Amino acid sequence: MVINKAYKFRIYPNKEQETLIAKTIGCSRFVFNLFLTKWNDAYKETGQGLTYNTCSAELTQLKKELVWLNEVDSISLQSSLKNLAEEFSRFFNKQNHAPCFKSKKNNVQSYTTKHTNENIAIVGNKIKLPKLGLVRFAKSREVDGRILNATVRRNPSGKYFVSILVEVEVQSLKKTESSIGIDLGNTDFAIFSDGRKIDNNKFTSKMGKKLKREQRKLSRRALIAKKNGFNLLDAKNYQKQKRKIARLHERVMNQRDDFLNKLNTEIIKNHDIICIENLNTKGMLRNHKLARSISYVSWSAFVTKLEYKATWYGKTIIKVSKWFPSSQICSDCGHQSGKKPLEIRSWTCPICHEHHDRDINASKNILAEGLRTLALA
């Protein structure tokens, strides 16, 4: 099976390369915002927007007027137009909101360039990128497949990364003739139908005190800067503290991402059929008592990773309806009792008198319902 796969590496540009990256990001943002304005104006006047080809032709003329646009990678500017056209296409298909203007204050600061004539390549411990030349990077693994494009990103922490998108062929994993049901929770991140429980590491909570302390420092430095009449963008102490907080958030994000990747890879390797509840995460986030803990555990990210890896390696994901009463049914005799409050973590079936752990029982019921759904399909 041929798939698109991304490899992410940290890069270490020198001062000149950092300046060029900043210019490229700024020019890409300028082009995106300029043509978004033109697109909106055209839609108001004619009831129709522009097209990518029209914008591309205008960009060629614009580069003759604004010569500083020629200092950066031309493909990155074309990529901005293509992204704008795709965002409008998805908007008109009711897949997302209308495109909005980009700001230099946004957390995501990046640009994308396309692979043409070997302008993107791995050369030893360096990566070749258009205009930048050879950039030192942390080569943690080999890049397999045909390179399609590269996205250079500057994080709020001040670190630089490159994501290389490749086209590669993957082989299906060996069949294990095993199936598993998974119930997702807060106290335990995942509960398997075989009785295993995966601890919720609570990466954000563990960093909570330190984050609060550093956030208070940031607030004090903001007040001092305003008192002295400085713009926050020009206040060096404020910006230094802001990067420190960004590094803490980045560490938490990396820890959680590593945990999710390792867990779902292990599940995919060891099971052919994975049954999981189709959770209404958006609806659950409206519960103010649970919203914070639900957002921290990253259920949506876990399920998304599980789905695309299952597609890659020939495994089956079955989503059980969110209305299925997995916690109310006895997994032994099938008797359905009434709805139970969240504080009840174990219960005894009044018919067969089997004592159940609430979450393990739910995961067994999810597995049974998933297999039943698969048999009917």
Rank of each mutant, 00 (worst) to 15 (best):
G181T: 11
N186K: 08
K206F: 10
I198M: 05
M207Q: 07
I120G: 10
A222I: 03
S157E: 11
R153W: 07
E177I: 01
R154S: 10
I127W: 13
R141I: 03
Q215A: 12
R154Q: 14
N119W: 13
T151P: 04
K175P: 10
G158S: 12
V162S: 03
G181Q: 08
I122F: 12
L218W: 01
K210N: 14
P130Q: 09
Q215G: 05
V143Y: 04
E177A: 02
A222F: 01
A138V: 00
L211S: 03
G124R: 02
T204W: 02
R221D: 12
F189Y: 06
L129T: 01
R221F: 07
T116W: 05
L211P: 08
K202H: 10
I182K: 05
D183Y: 06
T116H: 09
K217F: 08
P130K: 05
R213I: 00
K174Y: 00
S163M: 07
S140W: 07
S179Y: 04
R141L: 02
K175N: 05
S178T: 15
R216Y: 11
L148G: 02
L223V: 03
E214W: 09
K206T: 08
I120Y: 10
G208I: 02
I191K: 13
D183I: 07
E118P: 02
T116I: 15
Y160M: 07
K210F: 03
R146T: 14
F161Q: 10
I180Q: 10
L132W: 00
A121M: 09
T187G: 08
K217L: 02
R141A: 01
T187C: 06
E142G: 10
I180M: 09
